[in-house]
Design a binder for these strands. Structure first.
Length: 834
RNA sequence: GCGGACGUGGCGGAAUCGGUAGACGCUGGGGACUUAAAAUCCUCUGCCAUCGGCGUGCGGGUUCGAGUCCCGCCGUCCGCACCA
């Protein structure tokens, strides 16, 4: 009697079997080819969300598939466990961040296990564990000794809500990436990692990352922002000088002013003695930084009264303080060429400065420039003395050569990328292992004193850094002179923690961060999967960290992740009350809000978020439908790089499919009379599916693999009993095993498979069966499909042509005329041109 | 503003090299089974229509043949942004 598949029972059973037999533990000494499959580790917020389920399901399918194709797979999981939410919880709920974090980890680990992921839990790590961050401190000190870490007083991005410093990468539209608070500028002494030292390498390295999305490579390229040009000094009328950088040295004879940033030393010096200048500088700082504000903001300047001598003798230029010049980029000063730069054009128009054409714009070569906007395109230099007649690129080179020969400037490369500020005024992070001694200065904590562990007895009653307030922790003896000294009370940006966890997964000795040889055997990560929101921050920092490790001789590895896949989000419908409040599905009934009876509007499909009340908690869904149905749904329909809309119908459909599979397995397992005889068509379909699913999974095109499996199941269900059909059902258990592993194990056991299907090999394709012996040829007349014809494969051209011309519909359309031309595409199509 | 991606039925999507557009799933219609319902199974489901015609955002082009290539638009989404 046919039974229904009991997902909950099967899930529990097989998860326990895998666990007990250590099925997914990666063996370091395996002779098999290695495959490192990694998904971005989660922050332990307390609950798994649908985005995690989708991310980890994709990685899991690949990991399981790779095992079946004979690889030794490393597929680990851990916890990105430091960070602000734990401190917020400490403040709100009066629990210690560590306790809160560890409880969350336990809860989320149980949820991940419930989904049956093929993870090697023996390598689990949490970044908040001293056995992890202690090694990170050692690496930090290695970088420190190699000159990759330095401390400087600098204007930093201060988040007034989180009360901490943010890296440039963490400021979005002038607001903190976490808090959303308007970021302020503050002067603080901060630790920096010298990422700019690797700017060129990080840029060039992108070229080797063929298996990264172009989009991410481009984003990193833009972020690094390499520009080449000329750097030179203007002599000023007060005897001082100002250095500028330009990417357009060719337009040097079109210069009509020099402008410096509001916080440029020249502007600051002037402000000290000129109240009007000081007032102007103050005004510049008030300008907003959002896109809309910048768009409409007027170009403003303050005439310093100084003049700058043109290096090629083309007169003296006025020097302004201008609100559009950034101190952080280049030298914080520019020369303005209004005819060929839009900002300079607007500025010159406002202050009635000369606008001189030096690049011919089509016909126009005269100096009088009367366009409505600057001309920034290519052209030939005019009104530029020795540059006249040269093309823009040529002229750039000539000017740089001359500047270098005459000694007033040099070719130079400028990057948008800034060094990575890593100091955070927070408790729940990796303590920076440096001691400040009045006599010795900065002193590295000796290796034998690592880890510098966080004190447990801290309070979060007042905002700010508890380490700063702790009565004893920061008071230490200087490791060098033994005198009284202070610990650095800052902790590392948590992006440092996630910059090397993938190496620690590969090798976890107790006494050092990793074993070089063992790490090099597993790395680089062949396939890394995560959200596109990490396209810059995490992925750039991890690439830097890896290069820094190589620089200090700890590993021979340039790029940490050779394959990257950025998956789409999980979305859901939203609902809004009449007054615009977001409503959760359970607040709604029959198109009205239950509480008020007012009608509800269905909003856009959006990323699941608490604020929009459109989240779906995976936990009850897994309990209701079983892990396999949830996994199958996560892989169906939407291409993995695109958004997936969660829907009740979708999960129902997935559950139906699991039951359909079970009916096939169960019917065969029941043992009735075995099928007899062949079924060539089904054999062919089976082998096409084996090959097709393998290719799709390898390409991470899970939605296509799913579609192919549906086709196969449809074909098996329709097929008459035969030995071939029985064989197809057995093979089906292997084919679905990476996606729906629990029912696959159940079927494998039922049908008498040896061992676990998780350890079974991927079925071998009979390539002879991939080729059809008959083909359906399309018949077109003048490019329009008129009929199809089934012919033996490989039939000679003239025979195909004859068969087509004998076709009724073709004959009718030709109406007795001879065709002008007949195009024959073998085994595909014939086009009769009348 | 700069850079990028995308645009195919009611919906998610497929079409690997320029060669039968709409696989597969969802939704919906009809039917079988059932006292009834659920479940399951069968069947239809791009649009208009009588032959047949029209269809891959819009307008052109190349080609025997275009969702796919080229030119020009429109729209949506994402990233960056006063970067000299």
């Amino acid at each position: 009697m046919a039974s229904r598949f009991n997902a909950l029972k099967a899930d529990t059973h097989w998860q326990q079997v895998w666990d007990e037999s250590q099925t997914f533990a990666a063996r370091d000494d395996s002779p098999k080819p290695r495959s490192y499959v990694l998904e971005m580790f989660p922050y332990p917020s307390g609950k798994i969300h649908m985005g995690h389920v989708r991310n980890y399901t994709m990685g899991d399918v690949l990991a399981r598939f790779r095992r079946m194709t004979g690889h030794e797979v490393l597929h680990p999981m851990g916890w990105d466990a430091f960070g602000m939410p734990a401190e917020n919880a400490a403040m709100e709920k009066k629990v210690h961040p560590g306790e809160w974090t560890r409880q969350n980890i336990a809860a989320m680990k149980a949820q991940l296990r419930r989904l049956g992921f093929a993870l090697d839990w023996s390598r689990e790590l949490a970044t908040c564990d001293p056995s992890y961050y202690g090694h990170e401190q050692a690496l930090f000190l290695d970088f420190y000794r190699a000159g990759l870490v330095y401390r400087k007083e600098s204007a930093v991005n201060w988040d007034p809500v989180d009360m901490t410093v943010l890296a440039n990468e963490q400021v979005i539209d002038g607001r903190g990436w976490r808090s959303g608070a308007l970021v302020e500028k503050r002067k603080l002494s901060q630790w920096f990692l010298r990422i700019t030292r690797f700017a060129d390498e990080l840029l060039d390295g992108l070229g080797s990352l063929e298996h990264w999305p172009d989009k991410v490579r481009l984003m990193q390229e833009n972020w690094i922002g390499k520009s080449q040009g000329l750097q030179f000094r203007f002599r000023l009328s007060d005897g001082d000088s100002v250095e500028v950088f330009t990417t357009r040295p060719d337009t040097i004879f079109g210069a009509s002013f020099v402008a410096v940033a509001a916080d440029h030393p020249i502007a600051q010096a002037l402000a000290a003695r000129d109240p009007a200048a000081a007032a102007f500088i103050e005004r510049c700082k008030q300008g907003g930084t959002t896109a809309a504000e910048l768009e409409t903001q007027e170009k403003l300047g303050y005439d310093t009264g100084l003049t700058a001598a043109h290096p090629l003798g083309a007169g003296d230029l006025p020097v302004y303080i201008a609100n559009f010049v950034l101190m952080e980029y280049g030298t914080g000063a520019v020369f303005g060429v209004p005819a060929h730069d839009q900002r300079d054009f607007e500025f010159a128009s406002k202050y009635a400065l000369p606008i001189r054409r030096v690049v011919a714009d089509g016909e126009r070569t005269d100096p009088a420039f009367d366009g409505a906007e600057a001309y920034t395109g290519p052209g030939t230099l005019v009104n530029s003395h020795f540059l006249d007649g040269l093309a823009v690129e040529e002229a750039k080179r000539v000017v740089i050569e001359r500047a270098e020969r005459e000694g007033w400037g040099q070719g130079s490369t400028v990057y948008r990328l800034r060094d990575w500020g890593v100091s955070r005024q927070r408790y729940w992070g990796t303590p920076i292992p440096i001691i400040h001694c009045g006599a010795c200065g900065e002193v590295a904590v000796p290796r034998e004193q690592l880890p510098v562990a966080l004190p447990e007895d801290v309070s979060f009653d007042v905002p700010g850094n508890p380490l700063e307030r702790h009565p004893t922790w920061k008071h230490v003896h200087c490791p060098q002179c033994g005198g009284a000294a202070l610990r650095d009370t800052d902790t590392l940006d948590t992006f440092a923690d996630s910059s090397w966890y993938f190496i620690r997964f590969a090798s976890q000795p107790e006494d050092r961060p990793f074993d070089r040889e063992q790490a090099e055997r597993w790395l680089p990560v062949g396939q890394y999967i995560g959200g596109v929101e990490h396209a810059i921050l995490h992925l750039l920092y991890a690439r830097f960290w890896t290069r820094a490790l190589r620089h200090v001789g700890l590993i021979d590895l340039a790029e940490p992740f050779t394959g990257l896949f950025t998956q789409g989000m999980v979305t859901h419908e939203t609902y809004k009350a009449a007054d615009g409040r977001w409503l959760a599905p359970e607040e709604i009934g029959d198109g009205v809000e239950l509480a008020t009876g007012a009608p509800v509007t269905v909003g856009r499909v959006e990323k699941m978020s608490k604020s929009k009340k459109n989240t779906v908690d995976p936990a009850p869904i897994v309990d209701q439908y079983g892990a396999d149905a949830v996994r199958w749904f996560m892989l169906s329909d939407s291409p993995p790089e695109r958004d997936l809309e969660w829907s009740e119908n979708g999960i129902e459909g997935a559950w139906r499919f699991v039951q359909r599979l079970w009916r096939l397995f169960d019917a065969l397992g029941e043992g009735g009379a075995p099928g007899e005889g062949a079924d060539a068509a089904l054999d062919r379909k089976l082998h096409q599916t084996i090959a097709g699913v393998a290719a799709d999974v390898e390409a991470l095109s899970f939605n296509k693999a799913v579609a192919k499996l549906y086709e196969l199941v449809n074909a098996i269900e329709k097929a008459a009993p035969s030995a071939a059909r029985d064989a197809a059902v057995r093979t089906l258990a292997q084919l679905v095993a990476p996606m729906v592993p629990h029912i696959a194990e159940e079927a494998w056991a039922l049908l008498g498979g040896a061992g676990l299907v998780a350890d079974a090999p991927w079925p071998i394709v009979d390539t002879a069966l991939l080729v059809e012996d008959e083909v359906t040829v399309a018949i077109q007349v003048n490019g329009k499909l008129r009929d199809t014809l089934t012919l033996p494969k490989g039939l000679a051209r003239d025979e195909v042509e004859a068969a087509v011309l004998a076709n009724d519909k073709v004959a009718r359309l030709l109406a007795g005329r001879a065709p002008r031309k007949v195009i024959v595409v073998p085994d595909r199509l014939v086009n009769v041109v009348a």
